[in-house]
């Protein structure tokens, strides 16, 4: 009740608002959150690292020193069993993962949003068909479903992107669908219908901007999972192949050396962790700001 009281007292507010700064938009609110800023910096670091390396002509594929050297000297993270610099390889390893995961998320978001909008708006038979087919798809454990796809269509990065994207799309679709349910309960949708607005415009011009906050948050959460999925597939040998510096692959290949050369496993593993935690923290902050 008090909130309403405050909102509807324009006279008093106009006097008060002259002396204080106007609250900033979504961007301003996010920038005032330390975890958000830190996470964006970490994500930015991993995006920039492979680009800068490529610019410097470094790819982490060549032998640059002795075998299994501990951290120190010219190799801050040491070298691996083939004498390659772990620091350079860890930086370069962000490349494959940050190509596959965002692309997979983009596919999941576009496909999922379209299906979610359709299911939520048309309901009935459209909704039933989509939801039941999602149930069937998700009856398989995720990793097995993706294994089947790579087994059938090969393990090229494009196949993996599409496989992860298709598997994540229903999750986004479900979230969007429930947001659409809420929005269609508001009369601006009916109002557009009663004025003869085309279904296409109702879905994408009227509804989509209103479910966008939910969609953005869900897509960011999916990005975190896509990083995991991509690293996991490489770990299982289904993604990147040697001599790629892909983190999942590197962890998989070097885990036998964990007692003799812990650095060759630990740093790429930490890299996966920092990236996933950063993405999840971004998702948390977006949810708190966009959906409050």
């Amino acid at each position: 009740m008090s909130v309403i009281d405050i909102k509807l007292a324009p006279l008093v507010l106009s006097k008060a608002s002259r002396t204080v700064t106007k609250p900033q938009g979504v961007g301003g609110k996010l920038l005032r959150r330390p975890t958000f800023v830190l996470s964006v910096l970490i994500l930015g670091f991993w995006v920039a690292a492979p680009v800068v390396l490529a610019f410097l002509g470094l790819d982490g594929l060549n032998r640059t020193g002795g075998v299994n050297q501990p951290p120190g000297g010219g190799h801050p993270f040491g070298t691996d069993n083939l004498g390659r610099d772990v620091f350079i390889r860890t930086l370069a390893g962000a490349g494959p993962i940050l190509t596959i995961a965002p692309a997979a998320t983009a596919i999941a978001t576009v496909v999922g949003a379209a299906m979610g909008l359709a299911a939520g708006y048309f309901r009935g038979i459209v909704d039933d068909l989509l939801m039941r087919s999602f149930d069937i798809l998700h009856a398989l454990p995720g990793i097995i479903a993706i294994l089947l796809v790579t087994a059938a269509f090969g393990r090229s990065p494009v196949t993996i992107m599409i496989a992860i994207g298709i598997f994540f799309a229903p999750i986004i679709a479900r979230t969007v669908r429930s947001a659409v349910f809420v929005e269609t309960g508001k009369q601006y949708v009916e109002s557009a219908r009663s004025q003869g607005e085309s279904t296409w415009r109702i879905l994408f011009v009227e509804l989509l901007p209103n479910v966008a906050p939910t969609l953005i948050v869900e897509a960011t959460i999916r990005l975190g999972f896509a990083v995991f999925a991509s690293a996991g597939l490489s770990f299982l040998g289904l993604g990147a192949q040697p001599p790629s510096p892909d983190w999942g692959l590197v962890v998989s290949q070097n885990r036998i050396f964990i007692q003799t050369a812990w650095w060759s496993v630990t740093f790429p593993a930490l890299a996966i962790m920092t990236l996933v935690v950063a993405v999840n923290l971004i998702a948390d902050n977006l949810r708190e700001v966009l959906q409050s």
Binding site: Y188, E190, S191, S194, G196, P209
Partner: peptide, 18 residues
Amino acid sequence: RNPVQIVFQNPDASLNPK
């Protein structure tokens, strides 16, 4: 073209907030 129009009870919900 559109012979029937409707005005709803709750104007807050009947206008697209975006």
